[in-house]
Design a protein around this nucleic acid. Structure first.
Lengths: 245, 245
DNA sequence: TATGGTTGTCTATATCAATAGACATTTTAG
DNA sequence: CTAAAATGTCTATTGATATAGACAACCATA
């Protein structure tokens, strides 16, 4: 067991953070479900081959995140354990995709503006660079926990009022409907992973070193005309994608 | 500019590593393509709000990875810049997916064994827990650079000799063909992201703190019978997934 | 060839990360 | 009540991380 979950030294990532990441992941995969507790500090120290104080630093970080709670004399209890599944299909929608796994979902509009399309955005939306697009920054919650942060672009000519509509309905699907688009489909999704930027860390309530799953997606209407290009960032320890073919 | 790429202190992730990660990503997205060089150390230090020596530590790490090369008096040149695209479709195959983006692809068999199916493996392959499965550990290269490491399970009754066949052909598709399975399709793919384990770091030639894109995939034959369950780990800074719907 | 811009090297100092050991405090089980 | 097991707290020491400043070495170019 000692060699299984080893950590590396002198790599710029503190041991306590590597250990915290591994324990968080183990909790997420249900490794400690039998007891509902993390193994004792001395056992973890032995497993990871580090000093008990180093393990304590890791557990303190997890306690700060609200994932575990230490009780003197008893042990360290697991408080929260969640990994949502986000299906990616031709009919991908955030609310219905996550909705059946959470009691409450919310969509917050952080920022909205009309601006000129960058080369990348123009290419995805089939516009000329410089044409007007509406950009929305949105933050989506499931059961009061932030799940993803997204930047979306829409052709301004067709969807001028989408910012206000999103603020009202807290849903892209409903905002589209209000603007006369009753249905749309997911055309392409590109998935990458990266470290979170400072702004995303704060909004998603993550700690530095945390990982994001990034989905660049393009939706079209039923005629195949692009209606939305978006870059969504998901907290990787709270979400997984499922692609059904 | 100073605020855009900020880094965070006292988080268990050394500043030099955060900066190295950001520069590596910026190189990958083509931010410095105009000059083919990274900005001067003093400029980077100003942008990130750190001392020049800290930037030097970051650049030294990237030089170690072979991504940049510093030339005294001139600047720091970008040596290598790659991000492969891996399409996920009903007909997903590694070699043909990556093949058109690399001159040479290779598949190395690291380990192979026949063993009893765990609960997870049995569930995916439609077997009873404890039934025999063949497990293969494979490492896949594109142009001499390791791209992904995969653990695959196959029903042992049907694919007893697949280890030897893979070693010969360096391709799952060809190994299947030799064992009488001429075609197969991708049924389900689950995508997550996580920090790499020590063993994966070494095999994929990554530095700790590096991120993996993880695809759990299940392939079936044309009758819908599961033939393969695999967990593939990709170096996130070298690969992106594309899902076409 | 002189100058400005760039990377390379050195010294010094303060803080964070990790180890080590000892002992206190609390809970659970016997 | 007692003992074992677990977390909490304290002191001390070492090495890694980060800052600061000064100057050397090298390159391109005017």
């Amino acid at each position: 067991m000692a060699g299984l979950k080893q950590v590396q030294r002198q790599t710029g990532v503190a041991l306590w953070r590597q250990i915290a990441d591994r324990i968080r992941e183990a909790i997420g995969t249900g490794a400690y479900d039998e007891t509902g507790m993390v193994p004792p500090e001395t056992v973890l120290a032995l497993q990871f081959g580090v000093n008990r104080h180093t393990v304590r630093s890791a557990l303190a970080a997890l306690a700060q995140e609200g994932i575990v709670r230490a009780v003197q004399g008893r042990g360290t209890l697991i408080e929260r354990k969640e990994r949502l599944n986000f299906p990616i299909t031709r009919r991908t929608r955030f609310t219905s995709g996550i909705g059946d796994q959470a009691r409450e979902t919310r969509g917050l509009l952080l920022d909205g503006a009309t601006e000129e399309a960058s080369a990348e955005v123009a290419r995805w939306l089939g516009l000329k660079p410089g044409e007007q697009v509406v950009r929305l920054e949105t933050l989506r919650h499931a059961d009061k926990r932030p799940v993803s942060k997204a930047t979306s672009w829409f052709p301004a000519v067709r969807f001028a009022g989408i910012g206000e509509a999103y603020r009202k309905h807290e849903s892209i699907t409903k905002a589209f409907a209000e603007l006369g688009l009753s249905d749309y489909v997911r055309a392409t999704t590109e998935v990458t992973a990266a470290h979170a930027s400072t702004a995303d860390l704060a909004d998603l309530e993550l700690t530095p070193g945390a990982i994001l799953l990034i989905a660049k997606a393009m939706n079209t209407d039923l005629d195949g005309v692009p209606v939305q290009y978006s870059i969504s960032r998901f907290a990787a320890d709270r979400v997984q994608f499922t692609i059904e073919n």
